[in-house]
Amino acid sequence: MSSFDYRKPLRAINFICNAPQAKAVSLVGDFNHWNPASHPMKQMPDHSWLLTVELKHGHHRYAFLVDGVLTLDPRAQGITRSDKGERVSLVPVS
């Protein structure tokens, strides 16, 4: 069993959103104060959207903005609410 390494406080996390028809997808969450312009995702050759973000140890709330619509990640490890009361996804980072 290993403990979290505080000398490496950030860990790269891949976020993948399967929205092949979307024109624009961005990642919003506690880590960017839910700013839609902060983390635009890139469309991959298979038409899914990908973004790698470095996050701190702990649990983070996030969602995808698919053409402006807040969308849960169906592959997320959890569901919770944002401070606005919207249902959002959860990702653990260890």
């Binding site: 860990r11 891949n14 790698t52």
Partner: peptide, 9 residues
């Protein structure tokens, strides 16, 4: 789901 993390827990 597959875990979206680059390194699973």
């Amino acid at each position: 789901p597959e875990v979206t993390q680059s390194k699973t827990r």
